Simulated scan of single mutants.
Amino acid sequence: MAKLTMRLLDGPLADGAKVVTSMDSRIRPVLAGGGRTTLRCGSCAFPVARRIDPESVRGLVLRCPRCHRDNALPD
């Protein structure tokens, strides 16, 4: 399984940004699927998404449930 470190987003998000975050009080990945890649937070390396196809989250902002930083796929 491949591991990919995401790019941190600093500063305010653009209007209309699609942010995916956990609504659960437990700290666990925001997304899980049937792909082959784990996306890690660019700040704390927590697995924000597991077993996904990275292209399926292109254009989304994934908020890390551990450190609460905003991440996106690398360019």
Rank of each mutant, 00 (worst) to 15 (best):
1 M>R: 04
1 M>A: 12
2 A>V: 09
2 A>G: 03
2 A>N: 14
3 K>F: 02
3 K>L: 06
3 K>W: 03
5 T>R: 11
5 T>L: 04
5 T>Y: 02
5 T>M: 01
6 M>Y: 08
7 R>N: 08
7 R>A: 13
7 R>E: 15
8 L>N: 04
8 L>A: 07
9 L>I: 15
9 L>N: 05
9 L>Y: 00
10 D>M: 03
10 D>I: 03
12 P>D: 14
12 P>Y: 03
12 P>I: 05
12 P>A: 14
14 A>Q: 12
14 A>P: 12
14 A>Y: 00
15 D>C: 00
15 D>T: 08
15 D>N: 12
16 G>S: 10
16 G>K: 11
17 A>C: 08
17 A>Y: 08
18 K>F: 09
19 V>A: 03
19 V>S: 09
19 V>M: 10
22 S>H: 02
22 S>A: 08
22 S>Q: 05
22 S>M: 02
22 S>D: 00
23 M>H: 09
23 M>A: 13
23 M>W: 10
24 D>V: 06
24 D>S: 11
25 S>E: 15
26 R>T: 12
27 I>T: 13
28 R>I: 01
30 V>D: 05
30 V>I: 05
31 L>E: 04
34 G>F: 12
35 G>C: 06
35 G>W: 03
35 G>D: 00
36 R>Q: 14
36 R>H: 13
36 R>S: 14
37 T>E: 12
37 T>C: 11
38 T>H: 12
38 T>Q: 11
38 T>V: 08
39 L>D: 09
39 L>A: 09
39 L>E: 06
40 R>Q: 15
40 R>K: 13
41 C>H: 10
41 C>T: 09
41 C>I: 06
43 S>R: 14
43 S>T: 09
43 S>A: 15
43 S>D: 11
45 A>F: 07
45 A>E: 14
46 F>T: 05
46 F>Q: 07
47 P>T: 01
47 P>E: 13
47 P>K: 00
48 V>R: 03
48 V>D: 02
49 A>R: 04
49 A>E: 13
51 R>I: 00
53 D>V: 11
53 D>R: 11
54 P>C: 12
54 P>Y: 10
55 E>L: 12
55 E>N: 14
56 S>W: 06
56 S>G: 05
58 R>N: 11
58 R>I: 07
59 G>M: 08
59 G>E: 04
59 G>K: 06
60 L>T: 10
60 L>D: 06
61 V>I: 14
62 L>I: 15
63 R>V: 11
63 R>W: 01
64 C>A: 03
64 C>V: 08
65 P>L: 03
65 P>H: 01
66 R>D: 03
66 R>P: 00
66 R>C: 02
66 R>Q: 10
67 C>R: 05
67 C>A: 04
68 H>Q: 13
68 H>T: 12
68 H>N: 13
69 R>A: 15
70 D>W: 02
71 N>V: 11
71 N>I: 05
71 N>C: 09
72 A>N: 00
73 L>T: 09
74 P>H: 07
74 P>M: 04
74 P>Q: 10
74 P>T: 13
